[in-house]
Nucleic acid binder design. Structure first.
Lengths: 347, 347
DNA sequence: ATGAAAGCGCTAACAG
DNA sequence: CTGTTAGCGCTTTCAT
């Protein structure tokens, strides 16, 4: 009486499938890749064996020769609903494509390059990145090695694609709106920029320049406050700006998260929209909430993510090498957070 | 004159490093793994070669024998700030550990199990998951194959750890608060539950039961509305609830995203906190914003993520097999969204 | 149309 | 302490 060998409960490998189906590994490989040159009969038997064994190919092993069927998405900050919106757009576009999306958040001072490296080390088939502080030359090199799309960069890149809002135009929209309402004392709240990257390539510095230019045109004094990217950091920065003397009548915040932080400070200081107008940039979902009602510049995050994904898949599937540069036209969304300035108080 | 061979610009492999350093691959392997048994001299030479070549180990190849140094985090929904908060906690805890965190968002109807499979196929070293609709037996099997921690599950699991809020206690806190304020017409807004999972294992159904029980105790009629998990879906559900006859004086929403949606409907219908109190669950950052000021139950998302990560690393590093079940004590945060009900209007 | 065999880049025995 | 030798599970020529 022969003992049935206790099955080691090992994950079935391609060899197991091949043996159960009575064919070669190569045949199994062709079937799972839908490769050319398999008879219907063979396909039938192999698929039956796969089902019977509950076989799943090891992506790790596949990655060594072929594709990993994995796309990496690097984001610099988790607590920013705009990025969530972009990711959602990317994820939706990817549905049913056979690719799995992995989001690699930058955390602490592990920003940009190291995260992109981590993605690359894991042999992802393509990368979408929002890396405001990666140097263009470095990205150019990465783009040669792996299909790459950058969001929110105005780089005239050759090896990677870009998708970005027309930030100068968007910022002009915001400023024109405030100025038309009658504001002249307009402050700008932005985030500290990386020294690694030429100024003109980044959204925040472009918006800043448009702000400065607009102020110059109306002959007003520019006032720029800059700090961290988190809502509470923006609150702190705004608090300082608003509680001091010579408080502005309006704040143009470089993105919606900063704007929400400004609204927090405004409310905490007992001010309302008549006393301080606030404009943001992004049009996150929350901006349309009636309790927030934030005037902002729409840069269609969901669509941005979808476009980026399409560009990436195109690069992967067709091997395209020429860079594409998509620019999203911004649109102003006027809501309750902006009002004409109050009548000047008599001295 | 010998032509210099055009270097194929291939990524340097371990063999290249070994040759440049004049040692064996095994030696290089030991160095990069900080393994036992390398002389300082050897380490020196190998590290020099690594620097010279700009060598980076292929994680794909490492994954086939050893570890992938990658942790997977599955979340069911991107547009929920509570999940973001948990992810942030996990990411912070992981900083400097040498592990890279990959977030795999569920998208469309690709929820739970398929996403976890995708993670497993890629040989991640461990998984943190928020899978409200994965069957316990299935998870039990997965837990045998890979270190696994589930968030927001009350499963008496044997192969995986769980971290969860004491949802019944938290919901009781919320209900007691409303009842103490004088409310009796309290509706509950929740999300549709998966039929795959026993009710008593999920946060939302636990909260629902606590609600029903509280209503029974005060002899009031329960009113439960259920819909999708998105803020705008909650807005729609709440709109229906609030615009019909017999409008409740308070809504207990099963999470903060639903509560924010309820606040949206409330404001759109021209109602304020005196006319409708709203309580949420999670205490997302936005809840403390003065323009939202949402009374809610704090379940410390950041800490939840950190604890989950610690449990996972412990499983990975020590090989622990016994399951741990952490319960987070909830705390009520009273804010402006809850008030005593208005005086009854005369018929 | 199918299969044998050689790797992909690494880790893990084991031998020296 | 160091190097040799097998694989890990797949893809890919290249025969047949």
């Amino acid at each position: 009486m022969t003992e049935t060998e206790a099955s080691p409960r090992r994950r079935p490998s391609m060899l197991d499938v091949a043996e159960t189906a009575g064919v070669s590994k190569a045949a199994v490989s062709k079937v799972i890749r839908n490769a050319y040159g398999v008879s219907p009969a063979m396909r039938e038997r192999v698929e039956a064996a796969i089902r019977e064994l509950g076989y799943r190919p090891s992506i790790a092993a596949r990655s060594m020769r072929g594709a990993s069927f994995t796309l990496g998405f690097e984001i610099p900050q988790l607590a920013n609903d705009f990025f969530t919106q972009v990711m959602q757009g990317a994820a939706d576009e990817l549905a049913g494509s056979g690719y799995q999306l992995f989001v690699a958040p930058a955390v602490g001072d592990v920003q940009g390059a190291p995260v992109l490296q981590a993605l690359r080390d894991r042999r992802v088939d393509g990368i979408v990145a929002i890396s405001p502080d990666a140097a263009p030359e470095w990205l150019e090199q990465l783009g040669v090695e792996v299909p790459l799309v950058l969001l929110g960069r105005h780089d005239p890149s050759r090896s990677y694609d870009t998708v970005t809002s027309d930030d100068a135009a968007g910022a002009r929209l915001a400023m024109a709106h405030l100025i038309e309402l009658g504001h002249r004392d307009i402050a700008h709240l932005t985030v500290d920029a990386s020294p690694q990257v030429p100024e003109e390539l980044l959204p925040h510095t472009r918006r800043l320049h448009a702000y400065t230019e607009a102020m110059r045109q109306i002959g007003a004094q520019a006032c720029v406050v800059s700090g961290g990217p988190l809502e509470l950091q923006a609150r702190d920065a705004a608090w300082e700006l608003l509680s001091g003397p010579g408080r502005p009548t309006a704040v143009f915040a470089a993105n919606d998260t900063l704007a929400i932080g400004t609204l927090r400070a405004r409310a905490e200081l007992g001010l309302n929209a008549d006393e301080l107008s606030v404009v943001g940039y992004d049009n996150i979902d929350l901006a349309s909430h009636p309790l927030i009602s934030l005037t902002t510049v729409d840069q269609r995050g969901h669509e941005t993510g979808a476009i980026a994904t399409r560009l990436l898949l195109d690069r992967i599937r067709t091997g395209r090498a020429e860079a594409h540069h998509e620019v999203i036209a911004p649109a102003l969304r006027v809501r309750g957070s902006t009002r004409p300035p109050e009548e000047q108080q008599p001295g």
